[in-house]
Design a protein around this nucleic acid. Structure first.
Lengths: 216, 216
DNA sequence: TAATTTATGTTACAAAAATCACAATAAAAA
DNA sequence: TTTTTATTGTGATTTTTGTAACATAAATTA
């Protein structure tokens, strides 16, 4: 399934939970559309493609919808992640309560120099040498990369060897699945979401400037 | 111009700088394509659409390419941003050197309780009450939102009133440009990049689980 | 009970984005 | 000089994604 569709599903799911807390029992496609800034037709189409059905003139029953989406998103599974790189960004994520609230558990942080990591909390901070053993033993499949640019590729490969297949990468290197590369010769596939903070902000400046330049 | 195209342009630009530092003078479309995980044809098409031309059999001259892209991206402009919400994420960004390295300057942080903000550094941390004056005086156009979910919408509106038009939003609320809303009745347009960390990780779990479930 | 209203579900359509394929051409080799 | 090679530039094609529109059916009203 398409990345965009999966993202929308996650967002529908989050909204539904909030509607439920507010005491609602049903939603209409335009409720979800409005809240997410998409057309109601797209909401219905998404559900239709996933064989999720609602009720003619009655909208969708929130509980049913939540159950259906959870089934698709695999929310039943335990969602444990590791964070590799406990610098500014990594440590912030370890302290950020939002992930936990959404059922995502950070089980460990790794750093080249764990003794120098400022973060002091519940989550264990280990050395990079322990990474492979830990991940293999705990069977972790998803990891966050928040190391400096120069370390990113090496850490990526290390994580792959340890068995990670899903990556959220905050380093400015565009990590990618490269079939020709030797590290991918194990016939596996990997899922990588790259978030480049500079690029995101630069992107805003492009639009802001082009709007400002309009009148000059 | 399309968001995806602008993002690719930024990435081409970053890569070109690195190639240049390595001493290269020219690049071919497949160098850029390989590094970014896109097809060479797309690289050429991007340039072609932007009237950037290379040399038959000679690739593109890096310096020329950088100049062309900078002209389009408007890199000449000063890139100053504010950060609203100096909690875990906000404070991490204030300390993160990567942005500065890319020519993005954080000029101030704002928080409801600036006296409780742990960050101690060069960047001034001010109260939310100072936000409007500061932004208007300094003419800041781009801001990062890293406040808790419940505060996000109010902060968003406050920033709009102060004159911000580009937003990088880390709160889990999907901020969006809504023509019908009263706050947008000033005939302006706004640019919003939402980054929802939970959704990004959840997205990875979907693919990881569907891969794992394949054999069960 | 019949008419009307309101939302879904889906098909047809349109727009956008990426890929393909190859002509054009400059450089290098023979 | 001629031939070969390598790479760009782009029109045609395909793929993907979203929109529009409307037939369908449940619920409400008359």
């Amino acid at each position: 399934m398409n990345r965009e569709v999966v993202l929308r599903l996650s967002k529908y799911r989050r909204l539904l939970q909030k509607f439920k807390i507010l005491g609602l029992e049903r939603v209409f496609s335009n409720n979800l559309g409005d809240a997410l800034g998409v057309t109601p037709a797209l909401v219905r189409k998404d559900f239709s493609n996933l064989k999720i059905t609602g009720n003619k003139r009655g909208g969708y029953i929130i509980d049913e919808l939540i159950t259906s989406i959870d089934l698709i998103l695999g929310k039943h599974n335990l969602r444990e992640v590791v964070i590799v790189g406990c610098g500014k960004i990594g440590a912030a994520l370890m302290q950020y309560k939002g992930l936990e609230r959404d059922g995502i558990k950070i089980v460990a942080g790794f750093d080249l120099k764990p003794e120098k990591v400022f973060y002091k909390g519940e989550i264990p901070v280990l050395g990079l040498d322990d990474l492979e053993n830990f991940i293999k033993k705990k069977q972790i499949k998803v990891g966050v990369i928040s190391v400096p640019e120069l370390a990113a590729t090496a850490v990526f490969e290390k994580m792959i060897n340890a068995g990670i297949i899903g990556f959220l990468n905050f380093s400015p290197v565009e990590l990618k699945y490269n079939k020709d590369s030797q590290i991918f010769d194990n016939n596996n596939s990997y899922f990588i979401n790259n978030i480049n903070l500079s690029v995101e902000i630069e992107n805003l400046f492009y639009y802001v400037n082009s709007k400002t330049d309009e009148f000059s």
